[in-house]
């Protein structure tokens, strides 16, 4: 029988009372390592230029000051941004939050998911991490990308989400 009971707005389950799951702690180390590599890759040519090109003091400062500021920002960024990321899997949808300055919370109902993808870069595999991507209709590229999951968690999530999405497709 078709039922359509009235729903009071206050009784709706809220997104804001959930317990956010953090990303895998190894992910922060990975991101810091990547930042370190990026900083290291730029320091060598800069050093060579400073030593061999015979720069004046002002020129050297003009090169090294922006470099050190951006390097510091790059190295600090994972520590700042990663704690702000998190996900929650609920019975009927999955939530993801991210952002330091612009904070946003995205919710995708399982019955709107078209397909799911897990991927891992060589770096990820070194740390046993993986990325989960969820796709809905009409979006371009990954609609929700959760990186820095333990590879087992990503796989479990993939199976869970597919199962949920499949279940909803049947009765649609």
């Amino acid at each position: 029988m078709f039922e359509n009971p009235e729903v009071a707005p206050d009784s709706l389950p809220s997104v804001d009372t959930v317990q956010w799951q953090a990303l895998h702690p190894a992910y922060k180390r990975l991101r810091q390592l990547q930042a370190l590599i990026a900083v290291g890759a730029t320091v060598i040519p800069l050093l060579l230029i400073t030593i061999f090109a015979g720069l004046e003091l002002l020129q050297a400062v003009l090169i090294w000051l922006p470099w050190s500021v951006s390097s510091a920002a790059l190295l600090l960024w994972p520590t700042l941004s990663l704690p702000k990321r998190g996900y929650v899997v609920r019975d009927r949808d999955i939530l993801f939050r991210h952002g330091v300055i612009w904070r946003s919370v995205t919710a995708i109902p399982f019955n709107r998911i078209q397909h799911v993808e897990t991927s891992s870069t060589p770096f990820d595999r070194k740390f046993a991490l993986a990325t989960l991507q969820l796709f809905t209709a009409g979006g371009s590229g990954g609609d929700l990308k959760i990186d820095g999951l333990a590879d087992q968690t990503a796989e479990q999530l993939r199976i869970f989400v597919l199962q949920k999405a499949g279940g909803s497709i049947e009765h649609a």
Partner: peptide, 10 residues
């Protein structure tokens, strides 16, 4: 609706 995002700037 396919998905919803709520965003807040500082």
């Amino acid at each position: 609706v396919q998905r919803v995002t709520v965003t807040q700037s500082r």
